[in-house]
Design a protein around this nucleic acid. Sequence first.
DNA 1: TGCGCCTTACATACCGGGTATATATACCGA
DNA 2: TCGGTATATATACCCGGTATGTAAGGCGCA
Lengths: 199, 199
Amino acid sequence: MSIRHSLLALLASDSAYGYQLRARFETLTGSVWPLNIGQVYTTLARLERDGLVVGAGSDDEGRIIYRLTGPGRDELALWWSSPVGRSARPRDELAIKIALAVTDPTIDAAAILQTQRSDTMRSLQDLTKLKRHTEQDEVAWRLVLESMIFNAEAEIRWLDHCESTLLREAHRRPEVGRPPGPSEPTPQNATARGTGAPA
Amino acid sequence: MSIRHSLLALLASDSAYGYQLRARFETLTGSVWPLNIGQVYTTLARLERDGLVVGAGSDDEGRIIYRLTGPGRDELALWWSSPVGRSARPRDELAIKIALAVTDPTIDAAAILQTQRSDTMRSLQDLTKLKRHTEQDEVAWRLVLESMIFNAEAEIRWLDHCESTLLREAHRRPEVGRPPGPSEPTPQNATARGTGAPA
DNA sequence: TGCGCCTTACATACCGGGTATATATACCGA
DNA sequence: TCGGTATATATACCCGGTATGTAAGGCGCA
């Protein structure tokens, strides 16, 4: 529901038409998470259907100006007042993938952790470089960037934690489910190979 | 695309029917992210449509057993070998919300940061409590839990960082965009009020 | 025996998010 | 004037997610 409320919030400051809303959103988040224009129009249509905005005809050009209604303001106030719950968040694909990898004895989980780590490390460096080039008056964009940096750092810490857990497990019960002979019916080799983590 | 690949991965170890797949998935992730049974069947239907699995008739009961095809194994190998990119991730609703809040002068961003912080703190404590009650042989579930803990910790650090940035900003350019007189055309008071953050 | 209830198992309707594409106008430079 | 780019709206389609429907089998109990 994040687009829905974002549009409401943007409309609270000032009425606007679809294209304008996308532009505002993108300057906010510096165009990470590019917002597809189609979503803006479909979401606006739903908001109008639900009575949260009204699309007042055209301005001097043929553009459709949307503005908040009373219920729209109520809905927005509710959003501002309630925290973003952890249950509201989408499934974490990486966590699931690693969970699957460490469970399946035919998968080389250590190699997967390595490739993931170096990839995350690389994007962490990209983000840090990006941060150095932001103007100090773009506060919102800067905070979004730093959010991604904090998340990437947490991810690296977690991956390291997974690796040491894996080693401890291998020590605790060595060669579980991994037959010594080359008699796998389904080889399923993990082709993942780390390019080497910087650190 | 995380369900799609999760089902492929689960089917790689052993052929199964839909209901069974959900059960396996839920023991993996300890039923955070509960997987709706409907999604399993629709996803299986799409996988069969795309030739990645085949639904071989019925077993001794009337159940439809799915198993991986060659292309299915290829697709799965590709998934294992490629890291989860940061661009593949969904929009972060919290980051967007805070970005919107700090940009809109009519919103009390500090209050929102406070409520969010105490909420996240609360779930962090819940997660830590949960972790204490996990058996040591449930490795996958434990790692998923710890992933959520690491993320919650990063979120708290980020929220604190936002708060200090906000204070610095307020000092750098005091009362920007906030007219001294009570002449707002649209009041839009943030009703958010912190319940008081621990620590 | 039969009624109700739970679990297992599959299926479908519906909504929102996300992407790609179609269409039209305006402007600008070669 | 032709083509490319920016502006602006709209629509088709897929996937993820939720709720609901349906049906068979097992279990308890009056």
